Amino acid sequence: MSIQHFRVALIPFFAAFCLPVFAHPETLVKVKDAEDQLGARVGYIELDLNSGKILESFRPEERFPMMSTFKVLLCGAVLSRVDAGQEQLGRRIHYSQNDLVEYSPVTEKHLTDGMTVRELCSAAITMSDNTAANLLLTTIGGPKELTAFLHNMGDHVTRLDRWEPELNEAIPNDERDTTMPAAMATTLRKLLTGELLTLASRQQLIDWMEADKVAGPLLRSALPAGWFIADKSGAGERGSRGIIAALGPDGKPSRIVVIYTTGSQATMDERNRQIAEIGASLIKHW
């Protein structure tokens, strides 16, 4: 067993022997301040990774656009098919120029040779490549099948209805392509620590998230040296922004954090800054 596999296998073990965790309302004060600064709703939840206990939450059962955070769930569904012998990570998928959609920095470079399922998941999570996500959605049967996968996990809230990039439209009061912070946090925890996926697939999923290259201005910008984070960000229309993450000190994750916002007129930089400040408060009061 590799060191990384050992780390993920012992996530519940280490967490069980940690000192009790206590909620700190100071972080919620910052979440509410972010709402004021952005002029928009902000949803927040913080779960203990081992027990699933909610440590703090704000608007945990209000719907927010998922945006690209759905790509972690998508690759979880792909990995479940791999575990069941219905898919192979090494299978190569070929596609054409007509398949390319807006923001496809990886797939646009491989029109000639195609990409493997493993490479597509890596591109979808680490670079948020939209064509990679659409190609992977095709392998599982489309958005409705991802929703069905989530329902089978016990998540009857999260739903995907459309493809990239239309799913980022974020129309107010439109339930399409949305989740709730509580539902997303619980589902992410199941994917990373539950028995739904094999140990190898859980490790692969967290490795992809740990290698995320496009979430630097968010929670990662607030992390002290030595902290662990595996995350996936999302951005959408109407001032929408979000991030889902597993993080913790001492090089291992111990909490799940989900943050979503929508309806702001603020710039992307300002949305990023507010999420980073929430992260800084979380870490300060850990």
Rank of each mutant, 00 (worst) to 15 (best):
H94R: 09
N50F: 09
M209A: 04
R241A: 04
I229R: 00
N168G: 11
K109T: 10
L205C: 02
T139G: 13
N134H: 02
A123Y: 03
V214Q: 06
N50L: 09
I206C: 12
S68Q: 02
I229K: 00
S254R: 11
I54L: 15
N98T: 08
L160H: 06
T147N: 06
D207L: 10
R220S: 04
L160F: 06
A124R: 02
S233I: 01
S122A: 11
S233L: 01
A276S: 11
L79T: 03
H24G: 08
F64P: 01
Q86T: 14
P249Q: 10
G248L: 01
G248T: 01
P165K: 07
F149H: 09
M209K: 02
V29S: 14
M115I: 07
P143W: 03
L74E: 04
G52C: 04
S122R: 12
D113E: 14
I140G: 05
Q203N: 07
A276M: 13
L205W: 04
T267H: 09
D99S: 09
L247F: 05
R63V: 08
V29E: 15
L55P: 01
K284P: 04
H156E: 06
G142A: 05
T262H: 07
E270A: 15
E102I: 11
E61H: 12
D83L: 03
Q203A: 06
K109W: 08
H285A: 09
Q88K: 15
M268C: 14
E102W: 06
K32L: 09
L136V: 13
L150Q: 08
V101G: 07
A185H: 00
F228W: 07
R255T: 05
D161Q: 06
E166N: 15
G194A: 09
R176W: 09
K71F: 02
Q37I: 10
I140D: 01
K284L: 12
S201V: 04
L199T: 13
Q274E: 14
I125C: 08
D155N: 15
M153G: 06
K144T: 12
Q203I: 05
E175N: 09
A266R: 10
A84C: 10
G263F: 08
L137P: 01
G239V: 01
L223M: 09
G263S: 13
A148H: 08
D155P: 01
V42P: 01
S68T: 01
A133S: 08
I171R: 15
L223Q: 05
D113N: 12
K144C: 11
S57M: 08
P60R: 14
V214T: 09
L49Q: 13
A245V: 05
N98L: 08
D129W: 00
T126A: 09
V101E: 14
D174K: 03
L137E: 05
G226P: 09
K252N: 15
D33T: 08
L136P: 01
Q274Y: 08
S254I: 07
T262A: 09
N134W: 01
T193N: 14
I259F: 07
T131C: 11
K284G: 11
K109I: 06
L73S: 13
T27L: 11
G141S: 14
T27M: 05
T178I: 04
Q97D: 13
G114C: 04
L47S: 13
T138Y: 15
P143E: 05
S281M: 13
H156Y: 10
D36C: 14
R176M: 08
V42D: 02
D48G: 06
M115P: 02
E164Q: 00
G226Q: 14
T179Y: 03
V82N: 09
G239W: 00
F64H: 01
G216P: 06
I229A: 05
K109S: 08
D155H: 02
V117A: 04
D48P: 00
M67S: 10
S264D: 04
I93T: 05
Y103H: 11
